[in-house]
Amino acid sequence: MKKGVVWVLGAISVVALAVSLYWIFVVLPIVSREQTGFSQKIFYFHMPAAIISFVAFMVTFIASILFLAKKDFKYDILAYSSAEIGLVFGVVLMIFGITWDKLAWGVWWTWDPRLVTYLILLFLFGAYFFLRSMVSERMKQARFAAVFGIIAALDVPVSFFSTRLIKNVLHPVIFSREGFGLDMNMTIALLLAFAGMTALYVLMLMLKLKVEHMMEDVHVLKDMIESRRD
C-alpha cells in the first residue's frame, strides 16, 4: 500500500468534512419548524453515515461469497474488517438518529420500520462477531462467518427499501423519480459530507486491512518459531 494514498484520502476526508460543516452551520439557513428546525442539520451527517454503513455491509456480503468460492483468507479479512467499520458507522448513525428523534419529535425512540430494521441489522452484525469469537479454528471460523455474513446481509435491502415499501414512515424518500427533495446549497453540503465520509471509510478499511494482514503474518511467524523450538 502506498503511503501517498493514505495521506490523500486523509486530506480529502478532513477537508471535505470541514467544508461541509462550514456549509451546514454558516451557509445554510435554519429550516422551518415543520421541517424540524435547527436539528435538521443532523441530516447532512446522518444520511451519508447510513449509506456508508450499508455499503460496508454489502462489501462484507460480497467478500463472504468470494471467500466461499475461492477459499482465500484475504477475502475473509476484507469481510470482517468492513463489517467492523460498518458497525462503527452504524453506532454513530444510531446516536445521530436518536438525538434527532429527541429534538424533532420529543422522543428518544419510535418503532418506525426503518429504525427497527436497522437495529436488527446492528444485532445481526453483533452476532456475526460473537460467532467469530466462538470458533478458534481459522478455516472453520472464516467459513461460518462467511455463511452467516451472507444471511445477515439479506436484511440490508429490507432496511434500505423499508422507507419505500411501507407507508406511514417517518423517514422521507429523498431521491425518487420525481426529483430531488433538496435545494442547491443543501445538495452541496450533503455531497461534501458524503465525499468526506466515503474517503474516511476507504481510509479506515485500508489501514484495518494492513493491520490484519500484519497480524496474520505474525501468527505464521509465531507458529514457525514454536515448531522450531520443539
Binding site: T117, I120, A127, F130, D155
Partner: peptide, 12 residues
C-alpha cells in the same frame, strides 16, 4: 449460540 444467531435473522 443458536438464539443469538437465530432470533435477529428471523425478525423479517
Amino acid at each position: 449460540l443458536l438464539p443469538v444467531l437465530f432470533l435477529p435473522v428471523m425478525v423479517p
